[in-house]
Amino acid sequence: MTDFKINIDNYSNEIVIIKLEGYLDAHTAPELENQIANLVENDIVKIIIDFEKLNYISSAGLGVFMAYIEDIREKGGDIKFTNVPDKIYEVFDILGFPMIYEIYKDSKEAINNFNEISNDQR
């Protein structure tokens, strides 16, 4: 039985959707950290995190996003959240995450936002 799964969907050359599943805690967070580190290293910095199938998150999991957000934004990217279940949103809210991260209803909205930004820059 795996407690945590990461599904990477390479939506385009630039945008990647990371779908999280199961339990993200101090034990499983390094797995996510490795994945994100790998993307950033390869300059893939437009990242959408889909929380739909995530049952649980602790501060160790949230810390992964905080660790990379600055580098990612410096490289012109962002981490955007989608499909956040209520009980996970409650934890975001306590920590003030909605002030730092953009949260979208679904991946489509987040993708549109990334595309709008690229169009504006052209």
Binding site: S59, A60, A67, Y68, I94
Partner: peptide, 24 residues
């Protein structure tokens, strides 16, 4: 201190545990 702005600046990964426990 778990202040989101400071964390953002320092991009620290941890230190929220105690803050969360106190809130919860």
């Amino acid at each position: 201190k778990a202040n989101i702005e400071d964390y953002y600046k320092e991009h620290k990964k941890g230190g929220w545990g105690v803050f969360l426990i106190k809130k919860l």
